[in-house]
Amino acid sequence: MSWTNEQIADKVLEYINDFTSVNLGIGLPTMVAERIPEDKGLWVHSENGVLGVKGRPTKDSVSPTLINAGKETVSIQKGASFFDSSLSFGMIRGGHIDYCILGGMEVDSEGSLANWMIPGKKLTGMGGAMDLVHGAKQVYVMMNHFNKDGQSKLVPKCTLPLTGFGVVSLVFTDQGVFRPSGNGFEVLELADKSKTKEELF
């Protein structure tokens, strides 16, 4: 048994306090925006210059100039604001954003994250991730637990180029919730309680 992407998103939301601000990264994390209960009072920040993202627009209200960091059309909630990239990253780098949720290729037991390139194979660039890992108060990673070859993406030591060293607070995967603890991963929750550490790491 493993969690669906929606269940991972809901699990992430359980670990986010009400009435806080959260930045959602490209990929899996964007799903979180669509699962936020209205009474939770979250301010979703998107680094391309908007605070107060609300999820998908209705067909009639789509605007090509209103997008999130994943370049998807979005809508805004009451009280939202727009600003330039410098002010947007000032919110991040200045420590004003409570949580960021990032995708990941590898997370290691020291809390380091790699999510922007596989040498010789794939290059996405770091985008805002390197700023977010040093600026947000809590850094959460939301990703599939295993890669295409079936190997765990929670590793003793990252082998891919780092996004940040020792920055990750919690990891949310289809297998559970984990905390990097220095010499391994502390298991906070499991999708399937019968899974052993050998199967997970």
Partner: peptide, 20 residues
């Protein structure tokens, strides 16, 4: 970039905007 046909400097986005 992979074929080294362009000289590229990848800059973290916040550093990018702040340098500008």
């Amino acid at each position: 970039i992979m074929n080294k046909e362009i000289d590229i400097e990848l800059v973290p986005q916040g550093t990018f905007s702040e340098r500008i």
